[in-house]
Amino acid sequence: MPSKPQTLQNPIIWFLVSLVILWAAPLFLPTFYVYLITEILIVSLFAVSTNVLLGFTGLLSFGQVAFFGSSAYAVSLLIKGTSLPFAASFFISVGLSALAALIIGLFCMRLRAFYFAILTLAFSQIFFVVAYKWTSLTGGDDGIVGIPKKPFFLFDINGPDAYYHFVLLVVMVSLALLYLIIRSPLGEVLQAIRDNSERTEFLGLQVRNYRLASFVIAGTFGGVAGALFAPFQGIVTPELLHWSHSAEPLMISLLGGMYFFFGPIAGAVIFVFIKEWITGFTEYWMFWYGLLLMLLIMYLPGGIMGFISEHIRRGKDGPK
């Protein structure tokens, strides 16, 4: 175990270095990759927020898309339908997804294991049905098209590079907050619940309340990701609320390593690049993609970060 000051220092340096490098990235990357990295950043945030539940609280939620999608819809409706400044629309939408997470969370907290997964899925599908059927408001399956990138406070965020910088800042700040939460006493309790919820209960802790807090945190930051995604795409459609879209952050967390804070980020980078590459490479991309997934799960069940950390540990301990 490294000593305490180091653990505090390291992340801050890492944070600043990656911020600087990523900030400069558009200078030497073609525009397409700027778009791709913008998407990876948003997907990373969505995955890390989902992983607060999956990896750090031990809850498998299939409904995270409800918060991502409802925030994307809310921000689009506010941008297109009102004269509110973008920042206001942004924070209102995030607030709405936090509220939605609180309400749905209250209903779901009693449930365990897979029952929890299916109940969250059912709730999120209700959101999907509303978006799909309330055509006069949401445009139905055609969605809301042409969402402009209005200035955020005084900053012009129109254009790929400017929007990339905006997303980068918001995502980095959000990730820093999530990191602090996971390292806080709250985060430690959550992990204790994950490892043994009965014992935690014995210790006199209200497991349900802690789980609910975790659910709201995940929903809120999922909402941040959704509010970033809508103007980025310029369109929102019910696809964003479909359960299959909930599977994506789970998959990314698992591939990256769900017991590591940075696991989902590693997963997002690899997931987006591999998918982009493989879908352009063959019409039968699903087969190769599926095969790759299967092999990864069979041979790297702890995800990429799990694999790496095991090797580092082995390296330190010397050969056995």
Partner: peptide, 10 residues
């Protein structure tokens, strides 16, 4: 789930 999802794809 992810493993069985990979079966679907293949």
């Amino acid at each position: 789930l992810l493993m069985t999802f990979s079966f679907i794809l293949m």
